[in-house]
């Protein structure tokens, strides 16, 4: 429903930041963002307003979360194994 695109702040002048979207730059307003923004920060832009400063560590954090899903730190690996066992019951070690 809401098209949001991340970009990197190039410069800030008052309540307007120039943001690089990896190809084009555009002015993005800063009235709504909830933390101070400076050059080098990542922001989430929606209709010309920054609605979030994206902390760099949270980008890595999100990736780590997905990796953990794949590694099965949650319960996923167990589900995976269960699925295989249920799909092929005759291949259990006893058979």
């Amino acid at each position: 429903m809401c098209l949001g695109v991340p970009g990197r702040v190039v410069s800030v002048e008052g309540l307007v930041a120039t943001v690089d979207f990896w190809g084009v730059r555009r002015a993005v307003r800063l009235e709504l963002v909830d933390e101070p923004v400076q050059a080098g920060d990542y922001v989430l832009n929606h209709v010309g307003f920054a609605i979030r400063r994206i902390p760099e560590e949270d980008i890595q954090g999100t990736l780590d979360l997905y990796e953990s899903l794949l590694r099965g730190d949650g319960d996923l690996m167990a589900a995976d194994v269960r699925a295989e066992l249920e799909a092929n019951p005759e291949q259990s070690p006893d058979a």
Binding site: P6, R8, W22, Y42, I59, Q60, T62, L63, Y66, L69, L70, L76, A79, D80, R82, A83, E84, E86, A87
Partner: peptide, 27 residues
């Protein structure tokens, strides 16, 4: 950042997650 953004579009990782999704749903 560019490549970091692109990591959320890594087709190989997407396939892994797709397999995990299939496994979870079929279970």
């Amino acid at each position: 950042a560019d490549s970091r953004q692109l990591k959320f579009r890594d087709p190989a990782r997407a396939r892994d997650l797709g397999r995990a999704l299939t496994a979870a749903a079929e279970a």
